[in-house]
Design a protein around this nucleic acid. Structure first.
Lengths: 208, 208
DNA sequence: GATCTTTCGTATCAATCGCTATGAAAGTCT
DNA sequence: AGACTTTCATAGCGATTGATACGAAAGATC
């Protein structure tokens, strides 16, 4: 379960002038800004304004824009990792999928957070500069899909799901629907409608 | 069936020096560039390079970046409008949905076109500047969903689908899966896998 | 051919992009 | 206290952003 690799939060020297701001709070604000505007379309000024920090402080504390984004994604995925934990903990893969879909629909329509999914909204670009960013979010999606796939295989082996069940396709469907819900959430679709769509998707779940 | 409002291609004066380039070809290249890089992350230089046109020519022929994008989207949606036509023409709403999903999975993994969906990749940003762009692509998604919903209602009335069928949720699911397939296509998922996921989603279709 | 209209290529515009040089300030260390 | 280390705020770096001013060039109209 290493979705976020902890990314070495900071060396934290023993001497020198201490940070005048709360690093975690600033990172949280950066995450929300990236969540709202995406990676390339979030400017350093946007970040420094939201974080309440000057540009040099941002760079000394987080490296550069890309590393700040990756750290923000790791924090965001930390919440997703908790969701991934629920995959293993769920009674069945069906319930795991249902929990994921409902959690996604709820998170994507939060009132104190931007609409949609940070991972889905991160990159609209295929530029070489943001290739690493694209890989990072794709890796997280792949990891979540892999966890769900393994949980489905487990149900197949246990006889909860029919032998012919396509675990990869089922897991892929859940991920696709979740990312699709993010798009619809940005379009203004309500939480109730998103949950209905997620519930409808579960109709594709094989029954024994 | 007015998905793309034709957007007034150009006034086309009778006098003056004629365009030295093919406007349709240039628009096609602009569409492909936006498709690959998104709206905000596509620069004017990117466009002029791909279109083989200088910046002043681009502005005199297409207005500004936003109008060029909207016209490019209208052209892209023209292909989607053909897909929407197939909704009405399909024997059942199930086959309409199946055709849409397969067509999407195929288009999103084309070898001569960028990966994913232009509409899904257009905006990663919620900035005020691109609000109109976001509304435009959302409107197209809504129009396609509405066509499919109407086709589903038609099947319900004809007794092809059970009376309790949630047409809005079913149509929303198809749109969500299609937009999700775009994300997965960008991640590198193969065409075969995308088609499998689309086929799996159809398992949610109500049976009489 | 003269005139008019429009597009052409060249050379930019101000604004913003991500990022940093610089020296003063604020701490911890011996 | 004095030396050392790191962050602070100010100011600005070169590069790129979307969009144009300008005059020459190319065609239609008379």
């Amino acid at each position: 379960m290493e979705l976020s690799e902890k990314a070495v939060p900071a060396p934290r020297r023993k001497t020198g002038r201490p940070l005048s701001f709360d690093r975690d709070v600033a990172l949280e604000q950066a995450m929300l800004t990236f969540w709202a505007y995406g990676y390339e379309t979030t400017s350093i000024v946007d970040l420094t304004t939201a974080m309440g920090v000057t540009a040099p402080s941002l760079y000394t504390a987080f490296g550069d824009k890309k590393r700040l984004f990756l750290e923000a994604v790791a924090r965001y995925a930390g919440d997703s990792a908790a969701m991934a934990d629920r995959i293993a903990g769920a009674a069945t893969s069906y319930e795991a999928a249902r929990n994921m879909l409902v959690a996604a629909a709820t998170a994507f329509t939060g009132e104190t957070t931007p609409k949609g999914c940070l991972l889905a909204s991160a990159t609209a670009s295929g530029s070489a500069d943001s290739a690493e960013v694209q890989r990072a979010v794709a890796t997280i999606r792949g990891a979540i899909a892999e966890h769900l796939r393994a949980r489905i295989e487990q149900d197949i082996a246990a006889g909860v799901l029919p032998p012919g069940t396509q675990a990869v396709s089922m897991a892929g469907l859940v991920i696709a629907v979740i990312q699709g819900l993010s798009v619809l959430a940005r379009d203004g679709t309500t939480r109730a409608q998103l949950i209905d769509i997620g519930s409808t998707a579960l109709g594709a779940w094989p029954r024994k």
